[in-house]
Write a protein that binds this DNA or RNA. Structure first.
Length: 318
RNA sequence: CCCGCCUUAGCUCAAUUUGGCAGAGCAUCGGACUGUAGAUCCGAGGGUUGCUGGUUCAAGUCCGGCAGGCGGGACCA
């Protein structure tokens, strides 16, 4: 792969790269490193999968991929006891491999290095240069608490910044909700004399209820190992306003999960509704926007394709 | 450490002055209507009233203790 096509494949489907120029520099390194951190979660869903797919793109473009299983971060965000969290991080690792990351992906449990003295010292160092307001603001879409803020909320983003340092990463990937923490990292790492990573942000997929973000806490997700009946039921029950493409979770799924695998798809329709359709994405989008594709027909097709695409994943996880 | 206010359904809050069957809105679930979902209409479920001891025929309500949250004060040689 030449550099231009590497950039293209990395850029595809992202909302922003900060900065693209720096990315071209990093790509020329012998083995550049890309990283993402996840709070271990009982369910890995399509929202997670978007970012995992991006890590796979990076892997294919020659990046060494590191996945942080951020057990301490999850702990700071009140996801359970450290022991419970460590246990589900094993399950998560399996999910990520099932989605197609290669065996030489490096999985790192956060607590393995985040309790070391030199790590802690760096956290304190950054605690001096980070304002409480910035730290809290960066956590707005991540924390459970919109009020009664805990000190943990301020430690969390600082640790994430130090992670980038200790994992020695060239590129940091995250959904758009990570943006403010990433920007904090870029500002503060340079302040204490280190290179900040390039930040790549992927879109957030809408929840099945139409909420801004699919999340495991809100029960508005489709898990990557949901059985076919559940997928069918969840798709059927999803928010899907006719003619509206923006904020439509079903359109999100077709865009990010189905057309990433297929150039064109077949939408089966009863004869009385016009018969089958064969469409590429832009055709589908414009037809839908014009009201010439009924939400139910779209949903039926999305169920069928999504069940098929997730088949091997489901099987791998067992 | 001291003082004040607060804690009731998943969430926001009622249940006053004067103790008398714990309610509403939102959310959830189910039906109706749409060839989906949503919206709308109808219906249902949902509670150790923070915990604990007491007073009383009867306590969400009154009294004591504890816990948590919010605000203030004090201490600062």
């Amino acid at each position: 792969m030449d550099i231009a096509s590497k950039i293209d494949s990395i850029k595809k489907g992202t909302l922003e790269i900060v900065t693209e120029y720096e990315l071209t520099e990093k790509i020329e390194k012998e083995t550049p490193t890309a990283y993402i951190g996840y709070e271990p979660s009982g369910k890995i869903h399509l929202g997670h999968a978007i970012t995992v797919k991006k890590m796979i793109d990076l892997q294919k473009a020659g990046f060494k991929v590191k996945i942080l299983l951020a057990d301490l971060h999850a702990y700071l965000n009140e996801k359970g006891s450290l022991e419970e969290i460590k246990a589900i991080s094993e399950y998560n690792k399996k999910c990520f491999l099932a989605l197609g990351l290669t065996e030489d992906t490096e999985f790192i449990l956060g607590s393995r290095f985040q309790l070391d003295a030199d790590y802690t010292y760096k956290v304190y160092e950054l605690a001096l240069t980070t304002t409480l307001t910035r730290a809290k603001r960066s956590m707005a879409q991540i924390t459970r608490h919109q009020e009664d803020h805990r000190v943990a909320e301020a430690i969390y983003p600082i640790m994430q910044v130090v992670d980038m340092l200790f994992l020695d990463v060239d590129v940091s990937v995250g959904g758009m909700e990570q943006r403010k923490i990433h920007m904090l990292a870029r500002e503060n790492l340079s302040r204490i004399g280190f290179d900040a990573p390039v930040c790549i942000h992927t879109p957030l997929i809408h929840g099945t209820d139409g909420a801004e973000k699919m999340s495991s806490s809100k029960e508005n997700f489709i898990a990557i190992d949901d059985p076919p009946e559940d997928i069918k039921e969840k798709v059927k029950g999803s928010f899907c306003p006719p003619r509206r493409v923006e904020g439509n979770p079903i359109i999100d799924i077709t865009k990010y999960f189905i057309f990433s695998e297929f150039e064109t798809i077949i939408i089966e329709r009863p004869e009385k509704f016009g018969g089958d359709l064969k469409l590429n994405y832009s055709e589908l989008e414009s037809r839908y926007a014009e009201g010439k594709l009924h939400p139910l027909d779209l949903k039926n097709a999305v169920s069928k394709y999504l069940i098929e695409i997730l088949g091997p994943v489901r099987e791998y996880i067992g």
